[in-house]
Simulated scan of single mutants.
Amino acid sequence: MTDEQVIGDVASVLGVDPAELTAQTDLLDAGLDSVRIMSLVEKWRSAGHADIDFPTLAGDPVLGSWIELLA
C-alpha cells in the first residue's frame, strides 16, 4: 500500500482533501472517530493487511504512524 493510498483512504472517510493532511496530522483531532477507524481497519484487512487492528491504530492516531504501519 502506498503513502498516497493511505492518505486517500483517510481523507475519504474524513471528507477532506488529501492535501489537507500531513504526516503529523492527529487524526482524532481531525475528526476521525472509532466507527471510521473500524471502517478503515476492515478496508485494509480486505486489502491484505491482516495485522492491522483497531487498538494499534487508535493507540497512535497520527497519520505518519499509520503510513509506516501500512507501507
Rank of each mutant, 00 (worst) to 15 (best):
S34A: 13
S39M: 06
E68K: 13
V16L: 08
A23P: 03
H49A: 09
I37F: 11
L63V: 14
T22A: 13
L32H: 00
P18R: 01
D51L: 06
T2W: 04
F54Q: 05
D29T: 14
L70E: 01
H49I: 03
L70G: 00
M38A: 12
G15E: 05
E42L: 09
I37W: 13
D33V: 13
D51M: 07
A47Y: 04
D3M: 14
S12M: 14
M38W: 15
V6I: 11
D53N: 13
A30M: 07
S12I: 01
E68I: 12
D33C: 12
L70H: 00
V13G: 00
E20T: 12
I67G: 00
K43D: 04
D51H: 15
D33P: 03
Q5D: 06
D9Y: 04
S39Y: 06
I67E: 03
S34F: 14
T25N: 06
A50I: 09
I37H: 01
M1T: 13
I7M: 03
D3G: 00
S65L: 02
E20R: 10
D29K: 15
V62A: 03
V10Q: 01
R45T: 08
S34C: 10
I67M: 06
P18Q: 06
V41T: 14
K43V: 14
L21Q: 07
I37A: 06
A50H: 11
L40C: 15
R36G: 10
V35P: 05
D9W: 12
Q5I: 08
E42R: 09
L70N: 07
D3E: 14
D60S: 09
G15K: 10
A19W: 10
A19N: 10
L69F: 13
P18W: 01
G48K: 04
P61A: 10
A50L: 12
L63I: 15
G59I: 07
D60C: 07
P55A: 03
Q24K: 10
L28V: 12
D53T: 09
L14D: 05
A50E: 09
V41C: 04
M38L: 10
V10N: 05
P18S: 07
T2R: 05
L69E: 08
R36P: 04
F54L: 08
K43F: 05
L69P: 02
L28P: 00
T25S: 14
E20H: 08
L69N: 08
V10D: 02
E20Y: 12
V41P: 06
V10L: 00
A19T: 15
D17G: 05
T22F: 03
D51P: 08
V6K: 02
F54N: 02
S46I: 11
G64E: 11
A30K: 00
L14M: 07
T22K: 15
A19F: 06
D60W: 14
V62M: 09
L28H: 08
L32N: 03
L57E: 06
A58L: 10
R36I: 04
S65P: 01
